[in-house]
Design a protein around this nucleic acid. Structure first.
Lengths: 204, 204
DNA sequence: AGACTTATCTACCACTCGATACAAAAGTTG
DNA sequence: CAACTTTTGTATCGAGTGGTAGATAAGTCT
């Protein structure tokens, strides 16, 4: 079998550049001109490798998920439900303000609402966000079986709460909020989580 | 002084239609064709009335803020800081899943990231989101002076937390989450707020 | 009525969008 | 080297983008 002309660019490196463009400008806001320039390739190479603009986004999302999976493994390996929540929000505060990336979260910045012809992009992103929530929920269900969470705790509600706060932190970070602001949100959020030490003082 | 031909459309009604388009498709995703069709006017009328696509968005945002201001007045009139927080998150859960509007929040859906030529849109939206946070913060500062919040409470942190949860709920709603899901997030979030009745059971 | 002012409509502008046809180039294999 | 396969660059496609020029219509004021 003959091999043909070899690809002259590294697909993963190109995906990293594409990811950044989608992250910073959203799906609709990321033009082919921006993408090809950032990736250092011409349009036909892009289409040969990824099929379409949407295919490129999906490939970038896969790579994004892959990058995050190790962090998420660490998060879920926390010794208790509360530790998992702490690790989760803390890692979100760091990653969403990592100067190596655009601020916020690709799964939020990428496009909550899109124009004609891109209607399925928001679904794609939502489904990937839901995956994190599912991982947290299953971890909390496990925690409940382990007796680590009380019987009246609601794993699904807690997971959804954390996932929602994470999305909110993405919005906050994209507005230019600094790392300390996100850490503070994480701290306050954690006091909604079972197992925290109640702060002193009578209130209300 | 002569008056000239009167406008044949109601600017506020047209703005409501434009608002919905921006809400559902975002700034970049909302094309002039969509907007003029929804508003029932032709492009020159739109430009005569609002100056540009960006001017139209700003007018729609003004109207959005105006609509919300009455709700916000009710929220801020809560008898205690905690009541304010309850009213705030509760009203967010309802409004973000109001079937009369697109799901989520215009200030989030409108565009966290935009393409070339729309770079200031995200700033515009962020500044309007920040306004709500400021209103909450000032209300909580007042609550602290009234002795309604303890000395160790941090009004800025609480306001930012609530604002962040609200943004997260916007993302959640835009993913298709129903009203009960948002109410649940509101309920969990409130347990992070000073003055709640701690749930029973030892944890961790 | 007639002058004046403003809005509306049709048609169109230059430009960008995502995507592709085609030929030249760069490899591998026999 | 020659046959073959795939990638690359140039040049371009039709459709859609935000925005506008110019003529006409619809009012108000004298």
């Amino acid at each position: 079998m003959v091999m043909g002309r070899p690809r002259s660019f590294d697909a993963d490196m190109a995906l990293d550049e594409a990811m950044e463009v989608f992250w910073r400008h959203g799906y609709d806001g990321a033009s082919l001109a921006m993408l090809t320039k950032a990736m250092g390739i011409k349009a036909p190479s892009l289409y040969a490798a990824f099929g379409s603009k949407e295919g490129l986004l999906k490939a970038a999302l896969d790579r994004y998920a892959q990058r995050r999976s190790e962090h998420m493994r660490y998060v879920l390996a926390g010794p208790s439900a509360r530790a998992v929540a702490e690790r989760f929000l803390s890692s979100i505060a760091e990653s969403h303000t990592d100067p190596a990336n655009p601020p916020g979260c690709l799964l939020v910045q990428g496009g909550l609402a899109c124009g004609a012809g891109s209607e399925n992009i928001p679904f794609e992103l939502a489904s990937r966000r839901a995956q994190t929530e599912t991982e947290l929920r299953e971890r909390f269900i496990q925690a409940k079986q382990d007796g680590d969470l009380t019987d009246d705790a609601d794993p699904a509600a807690l997971a959804r709460f954390l996932s929602t706060v994470a999305s909110g932190m993405g919005v906050l970070a994209s507005s230019g909020a600094n790392r300390d602001a996100l850490r503070e949100v994480a701290r306050v959020s954690l006091s909604a989580f079972p197992g925290h030490r109640e702060r002193g003082g009578a209130m209300l």
